[in-house]
């Protein structure tokens, strides 16, 4: 079995997610909603643009979630479906979506944890449907780039690391 099973994220997926997250942000008063995949890649960001490095943030989020998954198993839970990190002003709430991606909500004292949690529940259900559709559609696992991509990418590698 090959490890290179890939998945693709299309324009229409992005639009569906955008609509769901915009509605969530409006109803919950949260600042930013992000989708991060379990391997640590940022999939989508909606709302206030974060000022931090999103790539680093995504990799740490996935690691955080995975580590907590293992902790859950150790205490006899199949998983922790959500995590909450509380700061003085800024807090974050993380929720599992379809076991494939993570919803990250950034919020401050303009809202409350209770409201965020309440609204997340509905949002998780809607997003799960989107991601289930994405992962079950025909092209999952056989994403391929157009001809010529590999050659050009190799040229860039040579430029970056020296031929």
């Amino acid at each position: 079995m090959s490890g290179a099973s890939s998945w693709s994220f299309r324009e229409e997926d992005s639009k569906r997610i955008h609509v769901i997250l915009m509605a969530f942000l409006r109803e919950s008063n949260a600042r930013t909603g992000m989708i991060v995949d379990r391997t640590g890649q940022m999939v989508a960001t909606v709302g206030e643009e974060p000022t931090f490095d999103p790539t680093a943030f995504a990799s740490l989020t996935a690691a955080d979630f995975s580590a907590n998954d293992q902790l859950a198993r150790m205490i006899g839970e199949p998983e922790f479906g959500s995590l909450f990190h509380q700061g003085e002003k800024e807090s974050m709430y993380l929720a599992d979506i379809a076991r494939r991606v993570i919803l990250v909500v950034l919020f401050d004292n303009r809202t409350t944890l209770g409201l965020v949690k309440l609204r997340v529940r509905q949002t998780v259900a809607e997003l799960s449907k989107v991601f289930d559709d994405m992962f079950t559609r025909g092209d999952a696992g056989q994403v391929r780039m157009e001809t010529g991509f590999v050659g050009e990418a190799e040229d860039e590698l040579d430029k970056l690391f020296g031929a």
């Binding site: 290179a4 994220f9 997926d13 391997t39 999939v43 780039m145």
Partner: peptide
């Protein structure tokens, strides 16, 4: 499992 994001036009590979 590299992800190709057609919406943001990104490809990320994990080494």
């Amino acid at each position: 499992m590299s992800m190709i994001n057609y919406a943001s036009r990104e490809i990320n590979c994990k080494l």
